[in-house]
Simulated scan of single mutants.
Amino acid sequence: MNSPHSAKYIWQQPGWPALRYDLATLAPELGAARRAQGNVLGRAEAIGLEQLASITNAIWVDEVIATAAIEGEALNLDAVRSSVARKLGLGEGGPVARNVDGLVDVMHDAGSAFADRLDADRLCRWHSALFPGGTSGIRRIEVGRYRSFSDPMQIISGRPGKEVIHYEAPPSARVAAEMDAFIDWFNSSATAGEDGLIRAALAHLWFETIHPFEDGNGRIGRAIVDLALAQDLGAATRLYSMSRQLRENRRAYYDALNQAQSGALDVTDWVAWFARQFALACEKSGQIIQAALAKQRFWAQHAGVPLNERQRKAIQKLLDVGDSGFQGGLSAEKYGAITGASKATATRDLTALAEHGLLFVSGQGRSTRYALKKG
């Protein structure tokens, strides 16, 4: 048994894995996170099922791409959209790489089958789905089972000969017992009254600390976060994208994990950081929903205006990207590029849109520019 002074990593601390936190210190962060969550849930209720389905679909696609990107893997956007659409029953789509379908399967299982218990078999099936060919890149790895190799499990960066060891996980011989303890806690804590955000933060840190698989631990660890958050809400939803938030703060994410894994059993700082990221993820989803509501109001306000397909396409583009999405403003030339219209047709269409009150006009001649008329 290591003494606190000789322990380099949290799993070497006496008392591991009894993680601790100061609830009073966390109260402001948890309160802010819950307010942000309540705000996004309230906006979701106001938007209607059809629009909400489109938004959650887009958020899920973002989440799949983000959790892979954190690990340096760039997935094809169209492939992810096709896989997500099939999983949601929205269409068959084209052929998709098995690893993309596998990641979507894992995230779907975590988010929708939240009432099912977590066990070693479920985690190993997730792992098999991530590596359907039995390789990570061209390197063969242990797939669908905990790691068993005798070499240290280390997270390393830097050039050969100048490597930096950021973290070393428990030896493989300890993994099965460590995971049994984690799984027992995860299942029992779901009904023990512990705050759901705290539980998600602890689950992610604990799992990443064990690092039970040869590869894919980050993606599975974030799927566990999805599972814990769905259990906290008691519903299968993708209204907030934690992986996207973590990707945007990738360096801080790794730093926060590293500090927690190299510290004492009091992980208050890690939980506070996690809660802040959750709040930010909710705020960004709230902004997405608010923009969708603004589009709804715009179309309702102008429901009686006769529009051709070109005009409708251009207006939708303006609503999607905003006026700032067209550097220098929308011109007849840009309208033509969007719709395929000639310059003369573009000018007629834009003039009609301005006369109907959908656009306002600035400038003259070749400098004429158009922007949405809001409010």
Rank of each mutant, 00 (worst) to 15 (best):
residue 252 A to D: 15
residue 153 M to C: 13
residue 181 A to K: 13
residue 82 S to L: 05
residue 346 A to S: 15
residue 109 D to A: 08
residue 149 F to E: 15
residue 67 T to R: 06
residue 53 A to Y: 10
residue 65 I to N: 01
residue 5 H to N: 12
residue 212 P to S: 07
residue 181 A to M: 11
residue 196 G to T: 07
residue 15 G to H: 05
residue 249 N to K: 13
residue 375 G to F: 08
residue 334 K to Y: 06
residue 257 L to W: 07
residue 284 K to G: 02
residue 181 A to G: 09
residue 317 K to E: 14
residue 361 V to I: 14
residue 194 E to V: 12
residue 311 Q to R: 05
residue 159 R to S: 14
residue 66 A to V: 07
residue 198 I to V: 15
residue 361 V to Y: 01
residue 349 D to Y: 01
residue 113 A to Y: 08
residue 373 K to A: 12
residue 359 L to C: 02
residue 89 G to M: 11
residue 11 W to C: 02
residue 8 K to L: 15
residue 98 R to W: 06
residue 113 A to R: 13
residue 366 R to Q: 12
residue 12 Q to Y: 12
residue 112 S to F: 11
residue 173 A to S: 12
residue 223 A to C: 09
residue 75 L to C: 10
residue 305 V to Y: 02
residue 338 I to W: 04
residue 24 A to T: 14
residue 26 L to T: 04
residue 23 L to D: 12
residue 287 Q to F: 07
residue 257 L to E: 02
residue 328 G to W: 10
residue 105 D to Q: 10
residue 38 G to Q: 14
residue 252 A to S: 15
residue 302 H to P: 00
residue 288 I to F: 04
residue 168 E to L: 05
residue 298 F to C: 09
residue 93 G to Y: 03
residue 192 A to R: 06
residue 197 L to C: 06
residue 230 A to Y: 01
residue 157 S to P: 09
residue 276 R to Q: 15
residue 268 T to Y: 02
residue 69 A to Y: 02
residue 354 A to T: 09
residue 332 A to W: 01
residue 231 Q to C: 07
residue 72 G to I: 10
residue 306 P to M: 09
residue 115 A to I: 07
residue 179 M to F: 08
residue 287 Q to A: 14
residue 374 K to H: 09
residue 147 R to M: 10
residue 57 N to Y: 14
residue 58 A to F: 05
residue 289 I to Q: 02
residue 264 A to W: 08
residue 88 L to T: 03
residue 164 V to S: 08
residue 328 G to T: 04
residue 128 S to D: 13
residue 183 I to M: 07
residue 334 K to Q: 13
residue 205 L to V: 03
residue 128 S to I: 06
residue 219 R to T: 03
residue 259 Q to E: 15
residue 134 G to I: 12
residue 190 A to P: 02
residue 251 R to Q: 15
residue 278 F to E: 01
residue 305 V to K: 01
residue 79 A to E: 15
residue 351 T to A: 14
residue 343 K to G: 10
residue 235 A to S: 13
residue 86 R to H: 07
residue 355 E to H: 10
residue 41 L to Y: 11
residue 175 V to F: 04
residue 364 Q to H: 14
residue 220 I to R: 01
residue 184 D to I: 01
residue 216 G to L: 02
residue 116 D to R: 11
residue 205 L to G: 01
residue 301 Q to M: 08
residue 336 G to M: 06
residue 43 R to M: 15
residue 254 Y to T: 05
residue 165 I to A: 05
residue 158 G to A: 05
residue 45 E to R: 14
residue 113 A to L: 11
residue 237 T to K: 12
residue 115 A to P: 04
residue 295 K to D: 15
residue 322 G to V: 07
residue 130 L to C: 04
residue 47 I to K: 06
residue 304 G to M: 09
residue 151 D to V: 13
residue 197 L to E: 00
residue 363 G to A: 09
residue 10 I to V: 15
residue 325 G to C: 06
residue 171 P to G: 10
residue 19 L to C: 10
residue 365 G to K: 14
residue 61 V to R: 04
residue 128 S to M: 12
residue 71 E to S: 05
residue 6 S to P: 03
residue 280 L to V: 06
residue 69 A to Q: 07
residue 310 R to Y: 04
residue 182 F to K: 01
residue 317 K to Q: 14
residue 166 H to G: 00
residue 34 R to S: 11
residue 251 R to K: 12
